[in-house]
Amino acid sequence: MWSTGTSTSPTSASSAAAFCAFSRDFREEEGYFLPVNEIIRRAKEAQEYGATEVCVQAGLPPQMEGDLYIRLCEAIKEELPDIHVHGFSPEEVLYGSIRSKCTIREYLQGLKDAGVGSLPGTSAEVLDQDLRDIISPGRITVDQWLEVITNAHDLGIPTTSTVMFGHRETNAQIVRHIALLRDIQQQTGGFTEFVPLSFVASEAPMFLQGTVENVRSGPTGMDVIKVHAIARIMLNNWIPNIQASWVKEGSRMSQLLLNAGVNDLGGTLINESISTSAGAMHGQLMRPSEFRSMIREAGRTPAERYTTYGLRRVYSDADEALDPLDLVGDNVEEIFGSYNQLVQMEGYRFEHPRAQRERNAVQPTA
Rank of each mutant, 00 (worst) to 15 (best):
P61C: 12
P62L: 04
P62R: 07
Q63R: 15
Q63P: 13
Q63A: 13
M64Y: 10
E65P: 13
E65M: 11
E65A: 12
E65K: 15
G66P: 02
D67Q: 12
L68C: 12
L68G: 09
Y69K: 06
I70P: 00
I70C: 06
R71Q: 15
L72Y: 04
L72M: 15
C73T: 15
E74Q: 15
E74D: 14
E74G: 12
A75G: 08
A75L: 08
I76L: 06
I76S: 01
I76E: 00
K77W: 03
K77H: 09
E78F: 15
E78S: 15
E78L: 13
E78P: 09
E79H: 14
L80H: 05
L80R: 03
P81K: 09
D82F: 10
D82S: 13
D82P: 07
I83K: 02
I83C: 07
I83V: 13
V85Y: 00
V85I: 06
H86I: 05
H86T: 07
G87K: 01
G87A: 10
F88S: 03
S89L: 06
S89V: 08
P90F: 01
P90D: 03
E92C: 02
E92P: 00
V93W: 00
L94A: 07
L94I: 11
L94V: 13
L94S: 11
Y95F: 15
G96W: 00
S97Y: 01
S97D: 03
I98E: 12
I98H: 13
I98V: 14
K101M: 12
C102T: 15
T103C: 10
I104A: 05
I104T: 11
R105D: 12
E106T: 08
E106R: 10
Y107L: 03
L108F: 03
L108D: 02
L108R: 01
L108M: 07
Q109H: 11
Q109C: 13
G110H: 02
G110S: 08
L111S: 01
L111Q: 00
L111H: 02
D113T: 10
A114G: 12
A114W: 01
G115Y: 01
G115N: 06
G115K: 05
G115C: 09
V116E: 02
V116I: 15
V116M: 14
G117C: 09
G117R: 04
G117I: 05
S118E: 11
S118P: 07
L119N: 03
P120A: 06
G121R: 01
T122N: 03
S123W: 12
E125T: 04
E125Q: 11
V126K: 03
V126H: 00
L127M: 11
L127E: 02
D128E: 09
D128A: 08
Q129C: 06
L131E: 09
L131F: 14
L131P: 05
D133E: 14
D133M: 11
D133W: 08
I134S: 13
I134Y: 10
I135T: 05
I135C: 05
S136P: 10
S136D: 07
P137S: 14
